[in-house]
Design a protein around this nucleic acid. Sequence first.
DNA 1: TGGACATACCTTGATATCAAGATATTTGCC
DNA 2: GGCAAATATCTTGATATCAAGGTATGTCCA
Lengths: 162, 162
Amino acid sequence: MDHVDNILKQWQQERPDLDVVPMGTIGRVKRLNHTLMRAMEKTWAKYGLTDASFDVLATLRREGAPYALSPGDLMASTMVTSGTMTHRINQLEKAGLIERVKNPTDGRGFLISLSPPGFDLIDDAVTAHVETQAQLVSGLTEEQQEQLDALLKQFLAGFEQE
Amino acid sequence: MDHVDNILKQWQQERPDLDVVPMGTIGRVKRLNHTLMRAMEKTWAKYGLTDASFDVLATLRREGAPYALSPGDLMASTMVTSGTMTHRINQLEKAGLIERVKNPTDGRGFLISLSPPGFDLIDDAVTAHVETQAQLVSGLTEEQQEQLDALLKQFLAGFEQE
DNA sequence: TGGACATACCTTGATATCAAGATATTTGCC
DNA sequence: GGCAAATATCTTGATATCAAGGTATGTCCA
């Protein structure tokens, strides 16, 4: 009987006409996401990073050499709007972790590339981040982790192509 | 091979020293949460509500008569900080959907109660909301929904008592 | 080849959130 | 009863986000 079960029980008493089973699952996804984000933020903070800045730097790092993408590519990868991405890029540029370069093949745009300090920082931060994540999933057995992953993947598949 | 799989593949090539399996699962939770929230926001918007305002009104509604809780209870239930809750309450009070009443048994605090228009609005909105949620989970079979729910519940259980 | 449409990014304005600290009240202990 | 500590809520200041719209450049077709 966890927090979400209590919510469902309340609804059943107040609104027995509603089928609240999906609410339980979606509520758990929301709550789990919240909890995981809060935990991971602590690790990012040790490197002076946030969800947003880690996200951008990690996206550039894992891309491989020459560690550069357009703002539009970054937006698609991180699911944020253009205004948000402009803001993130400005902050990271000010911190010297990325550089804006005119896109040589498209005069409308830029390429965002990791600076050498940005590369070093994200390489250290992601090592710690992966350790934190391993900790976070350790409450489930390996088999449960695999099952959960497979179910999440199928759940997401229903949305990604649309 | 979904979006998250691509991310993991990139990391494997760039940083083969890292075990990125947990990153996949956690990444899917984040992405799924984002997608589900965006979808549910559309329903809330039809009633002039947001995630935040729906959350508060629904918490009061499911509590049952007399539909009143303290800001502190609301904070605990919704996982936001006190500043955020004060702001939410101010907005809802301005909209006439809730009322602030001096707590008769504790002079430091208030009780937040649903106004009659607030009650009517949330009762309609939650009906539509539950329909939206049923739609959102319909990509999984009933059995998969149950499995997912059980795994999420156990995952969360590792955090809730701490 | 030139004009209409599409695209890429930035700017603006409104809102939501958090962390930290302020204020008022209650509780508990002597 | 009275003072210290705990508690409940609000205030403040900094940031992040989004939606909508602006500007410059590229693309495509008649």
